Structures are given as structure tokens and as C-alpha cells.
Amino acid sequence: MQDQERDVADAEKETLTSETDDWKKYRDDDIMQQHSAIQAEQAVKVPFVGDKEPLSSLEAEYHLGNSIVLKKIKVLSEQYAAIRRTRGDGNCFFRSFMFGYLEHILDSQDHNEVHHIKANIEECKKTLQSLGYAEFTFEDFFALFLEQLDSVLQGSEDSISHDELLCRSRDPSISDYVVMFFRFVTSGEIRKRSEFFEPFILGLTNTSVEQFCKSAVEPMGEESDHVQIIALSDALGVPIRVVYLDRSSCENNSINVNHHDFIPTSSDSDVSKTTNPSITLLYRPGHYDILYPK
């Protein structure tokens, strides 16, 4: 049994090592600078969560940019119909996940999945308490997310429409609280599995797990990378697909758009391994948006 568990842990670490190397490749300096130039403008003009747009709107951002990126957008358009932008304020991963997941539950009305995620949230509470967090520091964030989760299930007087979900996602008093809920959940998962995450955190930031969580996970406005995605996906039991849009060319100059599915490692997530994740995010160096398949 111990040998089996050791093999699973080794396999997970090998996967995370590969993802770390991949992530460095996607941190393309040129496209990062280009995107940073529009982030300041977005922070003022773009709401926390924008309206759904046709995927072709991406081309306008890069019409004077790298031709490989434009070709990859065309490849993307074969599978994806639309994009929903989020504000580039450092919270875009959590904000994209927030809206994408709640929209998925609103559309699917999957009560079994809601029951499943609520059970995982209860475990997240216990994790934070076992790590020494006082309950009053996080309970309001947890309560507000559970309230939003219940509201997208139809059939009660508190149920909300898609338009109301969008409105709430743009309201700082709700949206920022949900982001903080995700940040606490992510931090708790990383700290709980510190031995697993430590080598990769050291490789990314040369800091301890505790320092990383205090400086790069829990504060608002701090950007997320693959460590945070893995931790959040595992803690909540929700698979996430991330599609990468960068300027790298493939073998023989072919144009492919890579993606990675972050699948929860918990044993009760076996069903998710046989289906595509219900949430798809587009990653451009330094930023996440929501993608909608055709």
C-alpha cells in the first residue's frame, strides 16, 4: 500500500515538474509586455467580468502583433465560439473561475455537483482551522460563496438569473469576497500539502511555502500560476482546462494551441477524468479570461 501511495506521489510530482517547465515557456517576454500595456487600461475600462464577445474580437488586439498569435487565434476559433474578459488586476484567474463555475452550475442545475463541492468546502474549513486560522478570519468569505452557490440553483425565491449573476460578479462587495474565499481555500491546500508543493514553490520564487502563501496567494491583486490552479482544483474537486495562447511555434513550424487539464487528485473525482472540464480558461502571459466551446 505504501509503495502504491509513493508511486502516485511520484507521478504527481513528475506532472507538476513538467507543468513548471511548460509554464516558464509560456512566460514570453514580448507578449507579456504587450499585454501589460493594455492591463492598465483594462483596470479602468473593463469591469471585473465583461460581457461575452465573439472570439474574433481577440484578433483586434494582435492585428499589428506576432503572426503566430494571429494564426493560433484562428485555430482556437475552430473549437471556441466566444470569450468573456476579466479585469487584469491580478485577480483574473480567481475571478474567471468564480464566474465560470457559477455559470456552469446555473446552466447545468447539477445538484449532485453542488452537494459534492459543499462537502469539499467543509473539508477546506477544517483544513484552515487545523492550520491555526481563526474562523472569524475566513467565515464571511465562505458564507458568501455558499450563498452565491445556492442562488444559482433555481426553484427558490432567492434564485437568480444569468443577468443577476453577471451583476453580482461586477459588485466588489460580492466579487472580491468570493475571490478571497478562493484565496483562502488555495492557501490552505498548499499549506496542508507543503511537502508536495515546496520544491516547485522554491523553483518559482525561492521562498518558503508559508512565505509564498502570505505574499503570493492570500493577498488581493497577486497573480496566479499553475501551483495555485492545482491547489484550488484539488481542494474543491473541480477540473479546470487552461488553453495557452503564446507566440511559440511548434515542430515543423506547425500551428497548434496547447492546453492542460487540471484534474483533481482526490479519489472521488474519477468521473471527472472521463469528461472534459466544464470550465475553460484562456491564458495569455499574465492574464486569464473565460473561453466558451462551440
Rank of each mutant, 00 (worst) to 15 (best):
Q2F: 11
Q4W: 14
D7R: 15
A11Y: 10
T15I: 11
L16A: 07
T17D: 08
S18G: 13
D21N: 11
R27C: 13
D28R: 09
I31F: 01
A37N: 05
E41T: 15
P47G: 12
D51N: 14
K52H: 07
P54D: 12
L55G: 09
L55E: 13
L58A: 05
E59Q: 10
E59G: 01
Y62I: 09
N66G: 03
K71W: 01
I73Q: 10
S77N: 07
Q79L: 07
Y80H: 15
A82L: 02
R85I: 10
R87L: 12
N91Q: 03
F97L: 15
G100I: 08
E103P: 07
I105C: 00
H116T: 01
H116K: 15
E123M: 14
C124Q: 10
F136V: 13
T137K: 06
F141P: 04
A143R: 09
L144W: 04
F145P: 04
E164D: 12
R170Q: 15
R170F: 11
P172N: 06
P172D: 00
S173L: 10
Y177G: 09
V178R: 12
V178N: 10
G188A: 08
E189M: 02
E189V: 04
R191P: 05
R193H: 09
S194Y: 07
S194P: 04
F200D: 01
I201S: 04
G203P: 03
E210R: 10
F212L: 06
K214W: 03
E218H: 07
D225S: 13
D225A: 08
V227T: 14
I230F: 09
A231T: 04
A231F: 01
L236D: 00
L236K: 06
V238G: 05
I240Y: 00
V243T: 11
R247N: 12
E251M: 05
N252H: 13
S254K: 13
I255C: 06
I255L: 04
H259T: 05
D261W: 01
T265V: 15
T265K: 10
V271R: 15
S278P: 05
S278F: 07
I279Y: 00
L282C: 05
Y292F: 14
P293G: 02
